[in-house]
Design a protein around this nucleic acid. Structure first.
Lengths: 239, 239
DNA sequence: CCTTTTATAGTCGTGATGACCATTAAAGGG
DNA sequence: CCCTTTAATGGTCATCACGACTATAAAAGG
């Protein structure tokens, strides 16, 4: 920024794009809108919009999140800046620099038309088909980032309601990572990490039907996991 | 970006800011320029500049890196996008959205006036005094990010010349983390991680003066560390 | 009452790691 | 030339984390 006073500068349009992720029926879903106009008419796209003059990217992202999900209170939701996409040709109409965010929702409010006219839908991750612009890339980056942060942070609780069972927490890991985890070992690890979860005393809940009722937990105060909860290394890759 | 066709949008100036880090004399240094004009005249700032119309942020960052360091070939250097800073008041003159990068240099070319008139200097990390704009925050974020990535990636070799000793590699960790590591344990860990480093056969070098000559290694093909090389947990923080 | 399902408890062996100690190979000083 | 200093390298040992696995408890459903 030292060059301010010497360089001529071009104006850019600045947008935010959101990869809003949640778990529905044990599968990872992403919130997508359908484009009505060219370019990419008929294609799905990540929700987003232009930065307003008095907004930071984070503020704009949270505003868009509220508009697209219809939730009245998005202040507690985890919103994380991914990176900024600025390739010159990424929007055929004009030069657009887009700050991408990942948002994590504990439960899935029904999809609906947000503040925008475009309809928003929950789409299972991976079945979205080709998205508009470079949104496939952004969505992949979001998934990679979330998967990685599950390893060394307490981010998984952001997918859970305020009170949750360890089984639900485990399903977050399994769904995002696409792997199965050993249940006793997962319990041991989570409970041995101070501040990851704290028990809600004397409570139990039926998970849905059969089985022994599970104890309820709340998210703890810790933010990082030491040591991390590593996902099982893939076959064929060196350990 | 679905709102393109409905929202009026404000143009923004887009810049890149660089936290260029290297090791000099066993201490972490950062490349800073001195501002000659208001605002923040006389303060140091991170090097950077405006995005050109045909550039991505990465391209602009690498161009700025070459200009400020004077290096003829910056193509092999590690350049990593940190995040984008977009608070409305971060530049008093106008609305500027800045994409920040961290760059890692193996050796420190002498500081000099780059393509810009502003002089560039290597300044020990932590002694920079208050920087212009929100550059203190950016620099802190860069340090945090690099420190974290040392744990689970092979990023440390980006601070090293093409051939290096394990002692040099260890000093990267110690310098960035500000901790001391046990030398035999560090060796064991690095050598036990496939693809982290590979030996340069039959070579040895004197580290500078006394002591047994150390074997030389090159960076391997691996990019991630499984399991990670965790920094010792700080006292007072839960493990 | 028995099976199914899920939660919870515990065991055991292996591997990674932290804390050490020992040895080797160089430089420097008397 | 010997001795000290310095740094690299090689190794031990106890502890801990973790994967694999078995067992028990508490619910629903037939």
């Amino acid at each position: 920024m030292d060059g301010y006073d010497k360089y001529a500068h071009e104006p850019f349009a600045v947008t935010v794009d959101l990869a809003v992720l949640t778990l529905r029926d044990g599968a990872l879903h992403v919130l997508l809108v359908e484009r009505g106009q060219e370019p990419y008419a008929g294609h799905r796209a990540l929700p987003g919009g232009f930065l307003q003059p008095d907004e930071s990217a984070e503020t704009a992202a949270r505003r868009e999140l509220a508009e697209e999900t219809g939730l009245s209170d998005v202040s507690g939701l985890h919103l994380e800046q991914l990176r900024t996409y600025s390739e010159p040709g990424r929007d055929p109409r004009m030069r657009v620099v887009s700050v991408a965010f990942a948002a994590l929702l504990p439960h899935a409010p029904e999809a609906h038309g947000g503040g925008d006219a475009a309809r928003a839908d929950w789409v299972p991750y991976g079945t979205a088909g080709p998205l508009a612009f470079d949104h496939d890339r952004i969505l992949t980056d979001a998934h990679d980032r979330v998967g990685a942060k599950l390893e060394y942070t307490c981010l998984a609780t952001a997918f859970c309601p305020p009170e949750f069972t360890l089984g639900e927490l485990q399903r977050v890991y399994e769904t995002v990572w696409g792997t199965e985890l050993d249940r006793p070992n997962f319990r041991r690890k989570v409970l041995a990490t101070p501040g990851f979860v704290e028990p809600v005393p004397g409570t139990a809940r039926l998970t849905g039907g059969r089985g022994k009722p599970a104890a309820l937990y709340r998210a703890g105060t810790a933010t990082t996991l030491h040591p991390p909860l590593l996902r099982p290394p893939r076959e064929g890759r060196p350990t």
